[in-house]
Amino acid sequence: MGGGVILFFLSINRTAESMPPIFSGDVVVAADPLPQALVITAIVVGISVTAVALIMFISMYHKFGTTNWLKAMKHRLEREDE
């Protein structure tokens, strides 16, 4: 899902003749640099969120002993009754 969002961002304001605005030569149509800046931030955020979620997932697996969400839900409800 994250990949789809990133591709979508790259397609914003892109035209065939636009060039990267890095060299200060005679660039006629520069590509809009802002979506790239946004995308790199989105990637960083996405990676860190995934890392946190995986760590949580591992510790949840240790507590519940299952990777199935429905089973985990049942376990949680049982613990509520105790």
Partner: peptide
Amino acid sequence: DSRSMYDGMLYLITNIAAMTFFLI
């Protein structure tokens, strides 16, 4: 606590999904 593990995980995943909507 093991129950709050579940709650925190549920919170994280649903809210990340919501913020992906926001991003698009």
